[in-house]
Amino acid sequence: MHPAPSIIAFTTLSGLGFGLLFWLGLGLPDSTGWVAFAFWAIAYAFAVGGLISSTLHLGHPERAIKAFRQWRSSWLSREGVAAVVTLVVMGIYGLGRVFFDASWQPLGVMGSILALITVFTTAMIYTQLKSVPRWNIMLTPLLFISFSLGGGALMAGQEMWAVVLLSVAGLVQLAWWSKGDTRFSEAGSTLGTATGLGTLGGVRPFEPPHTGNNYLLKEMAYVVGRAHSQKLRIIAVSLGFVFPMVLLFLPFSHFWALLAVLSHIAGILASRWLFFAEAEHVVGLYYGRRA
């Protein structure tokens, strides 16, 4: 799949933003006033920034409001609704923390649960697609949620939780890759099933329908990045999980903490880039993009 920068930024940033909101909703850290304001500002910058970034890839962003309508059937719509509700609930809870030195905890816990639901709905946008076998496994929501919780803990300064959850997220990442690498062939779609001609013999593409490029090839048969996938996987795991954890074991300083967060973000960006670039759509079969 085409790794659109706006979508990579969206899933990475809003995932971290909602992850941070999860911890803030639980009262971790137990901050009020200006400190709370700083935490909320960072969380909203990530969450809202990600959401705005996601509208950049729309053909008609001016109609984006219509996307809230079909929550009964569409995970994308549900994601929009969940994100807005979470931001409203956490906003009210944040007002208490910042201005009234108050912790309206039932509201906060509700916000935390909603933040997790939002990340889950984001993941389901991809998980639901049978046409992209690599994504179509239940490890995908686990991947998004574990990233979100681990990264959120890191940003919320919850060192112990960050170490535990980043380790978990790293393991989920490795499991997701290992499972994902065989998913396409397991899903069973071949050029033979795609054309129905497989029962007659071996099928191979003879002549494509067009000599130039088209939307399908640009969007769904992206092959450029797969060449470096092993190197990028090592970079993603090192920067995303290993290096931040090493920094967490050093004596606390804001510099190390910032470096840990930046390293984590860079790692997750690499992972998310691979998430799209390595994902193969079954339509590629018609073009002989997979034997």
Partner: peptide, 20 residues
């Protein structure tokens, strides 16, 4: 007039039947 051009339907179609 309701399409926001998100492209998700084209991703969901296994046959490549939709083009933006």
């Amino acid at each position: 007039t309701d399409c926001i051009g998100c492209g998700l339907c084209a991703w969901a179609c296994p046959y490549g039947a939709r083009e933006m």
